[in-house]
């Protein structure tokens, strides 16, 4: 066996890459309630509260019922959460239990290791998103304006937070550090990123914060894809997402190359 060259097409160890994905698939299916059911139940609660309890007392926003306006933001929060949790947990547990060494001693490139981790992150995010979308459609809380734009936002945002999760998991030395970014950065920025309100509702001195906040573009883009309402040019948001992927991807690749948090 060792004399046989590893089968590679386009320079990629596809079987090795597929094995990382298989391993992570198996790991996610050890916690299906936490991975999939929890965000779906959470979305159902949002639909119930904003659709039937609070929503009836709030006027239409840009011609849309409040539940229709809020649901894309809720869906985005769950996608961000799924992507970040998936990527931080997979890298951190590999480091914590040291089975990251299995891949370090194998003939896998850094790019294959990163893509393997990101693939399962995307799968988990897409399944989470499609589940919430199905619940929303079933309860007449949303519809689909542009499926391709919807998929672009789900996949690109899951890559952004998948990469961010990998970087944090490489840096973290304990479980508390692992949650710091979520508590101090992701949660606050996502809530002021227009989940519950339009930019025009903000006081003028606070509007700059919305436009400087990447979450605003993510939520705005997803809202456009679902109900056709947006407050910023879609291509500007897409450019922000792609630029973040490029920068974070480069940083992640560099960290893998120097072995930061991976190799002794």
């Amino acid at each position: 066996m060792s004399d046989v060259t590893i089968p590679r097409h386009m320079g990629i160890n596809w079987i090795g890459l597929g094995t990382i994905i298989r391993r992570e698939w198996s790991r996610v299916w050890r916690v299906p309630i936490q991975a999939f059911l929890a965000p779906w139940i959470s979305a159902l609660m949002f639909i119930f509260i904003f659709g039937f309890v609070v929503g009836g007392n709030i006027r239409l926003i840009a011609g849309h019922r409040y539940v229709e306006f809020v649901l894309p933001g809720v869906l985005m929060l769950n996608v961000v959460n799924a992507a970040f949790l998936q990527s931080t947990s997979q890298i951190y547990f590999q480091r914590f239990l040291r089975y990251i060494e299995e891949t370090l001693v194998a003939p896998l490139s850094y790019v294959e290791m990163i893509i393997g981790s990101l693939t399962m992150t995307i799968v988990r995010s897409v399944v989470t998103a499609l589940g919430i979308l199905a619940i929303g459609v079933a309860f007449h809380a949303t519809h689909m304006y542009n499926i391709f734009e919807f998929l672009f936002w789900i996949i690109s945002v899951s890559i952004v937070f998948g990469l961010l999760g990998i970087i944090i998991a490489l840096w973290a030395n304990n479980f508390e550090q692992l949650t710091m970014l979520n508590v101090f950065f992701i949660a606050p920025l996502s809530f002021v990123g227009g989940v519950f309100n339009t930019v025009s509702m903000l006081p003028p001195w606070l509007k700059w914060l919305a436009y400087a906040n990447p979450f605003f573009y993510f939520i705005n883009g997803l809202r456009d894809s679902m109900i056709g309402f947006d407050e910023a040019p879609p291509y500007l948001g897409m450019s922000v997402a792609l630029a973040l992927i490029a920068v974070l991807g480069l940083v992640t690749w560099r960290l893998f190359k120097i072995g930061y948090g991976l190799r002794e």
């Binding site: 590893i6 079987i15 239990l97 060494e101 299995e102």
Partner: peptide, 23 residues
């Protein structure tokens, strides 16, 4: 021991073969 302790014996050995490109 540097393994995923929740994985089965077969998975641990099989995954390593996969990383090395074995079909």
């Amino acid at each position: 021991f540097n393994v995923d302790t929740f994985a089965t014996v077969t998975q641990i050995v099989d995954w390593m073969g996969g990383y090395f490109g074995m079909n």
